[in-house]
Design a protein around this nucleic acid. Structure first.
Lengths: 246, 246
DNA sequence: AGGCAACTGTACGTTATCGCACATACAGCA
DNA sequence: TGCTGTATGTGCGATAACGTACAGTTGCCT
């Protein structure tokens, strides 16, 4: 009970609901573990649950005829999965792939819609995040078009660090290539260059950010643009995300 | 009066409101002309009006450091401009440029928010369109990343045709380059190739689609993907959009 | 009629990325 | 200890698009 009720704070959207315990039926939010490689949504298929990641990291992917995937959104503790439901659509246009294992809160689509319809605060939080996601998507689109692989890789690593709140995480070049929409070899080359400059280290998927500031310098400005936007849209004290609140 | 009340039908979102005349204050919707080259929104600045295009065609553009613009959305009679307001944000993340002159209905931001808050049907239409826009954005992102200039140009011309409901429209190579995120020379080359194949003709900005089917064959599949999605989301008889309703 | 600005066409060396093939390195398991 | 699959590194020709420069061409304004 204590954990089940308070821990949603660890997701920014849920944390913004002051009456999360009273306004939501206790059985509607369920804590689960998302495993690496798990596919949460498949493009075009119905959304069965919405997810509010805590530790987990999920990538939204689109496909283009005859090509590999391309990431259009990266969702961690600051967001949620299942936005289309809030827009009155029951299918997911993108696929969602778990690339960082961890915990998340989830809710069935039915419960979410029920709750969403009567909870104004949840609505405003979700719509606000929808806006964030759109900004992230558009910025990423421009970034993918104009910036070089190395800068994009650096940006991506920083975005991941922010979401998993750690300098270390597991991801192979192959998977990164699918996020960035380039060949695996392209990632190997770019990552090698970043490693040579002592900004990161990696070994068989274990990535470690050694020099965050240096990596920011190597990344394109898109990183700051999205980050700034995000912090403006979600002004919040660091202390608000507390594990000690039990 | 007859025009002011009936003509909103020519915009798909307004057309979906059966009681547009009774539920909206008559003074809130204003018919205006959008001129070629007019900038409706500037990135980061407050949204003063929302627009419901009728004939007009508006491009949503993002900028990336040190580069030209890139189109992230194309809005015609099937959509609206000012989506962020519906998401609780008062600034536009993208710039909006009129590339097809024509008429549109507009509303002040204040009036729109007022009306939006109490009109459930308007809400569902706008959110539905927000979803469409997100699909368009993600598909375009993948398209820009993977497909060649010529295919993207073909797709773009077809999208424009659908929105202005005409095979002829005015657009220079220079402007097209900014939409597609390539050099002007790149457009000239691609357009030259399409012309050679008798799919289009053009002269000093006057573009004419000669062979729609052929152009579809030359375009990437992204065109059909977004179109299919759009028609599923907005099932409607062609007769619904009628000019004779005055 | 002349001049100017806008639009389009062409050329050319440069570059990032592609596609593919293959080589090396390492972890875990039998 | 050796095998196998996964992960990473390297090489190389092909190519789409880049940046830049300049030359026509056409519509419009004075």
């Amino acid at each position: 009970m204590p954990i089940a009720i308070r821990a949603p704070d660890a997701n920014s959207l849920l944390a913004a609901l002051p009456y999360v315990d009273t306004h939501m039926s206790p059985d509607s939010l369920e804590q689960i573990t998302l495993n690496f490689g798990e596919v949460i949504y498949r493009s075009g298929e119905p959304i069965r649950h919405v997810y509010f990641p805590v530790d987990a990291l999920v990538s939204l992917l689109t496909l283009a005829e005859g090509h590999q995937a391309l990431e259009v959104g990266l969702v961690g503790h600051e967001g949620m999965l299942g936005i289309p439901l809030a827009l009155g659509v029951s299918n997911s246009p993108a696929s969602a792939l778990v690339i960082g294992p961890g915990t998340a809160w989830r809710m069935t689509a039915e419960k979410f819609i029920q709750e969403f319809d009567r909870n104004k605060l949840l609505q405003s939080e979700v719509y606000r995040y929808t806006y964030d996601l759109m900004v992230q998507m558009t910025q990423t689109a421009a970034c993918n078009r104009f910036h070089q692989v190395e800068a994009r890789l650096a940006r991506w690593l920083l975005m991941t660090r922010d979401r998993v709140r750690s300098d270390k995480f597991h991801l192979t070049h192959d998977l990164l290539a699918n996020m960035l929409g380039v060949r695996r070899v392209g990632v190997t080359k770019a990552a090698g260059s970043l490693r040579l400059r002592k900004l990161i280290s990696y070994n068989r998927g274990e990535i470690n950010i050694l020099d965050g500031a240096g990596l920011e310098a190597a990344a394109c400005h898109c990183y700051q643009v999205v980050k700034d936007m995000h912090e403006v849209a979600h002004p919040r004290e660091p202390a608000d995300i507390r594990e000690s609140s039990v």
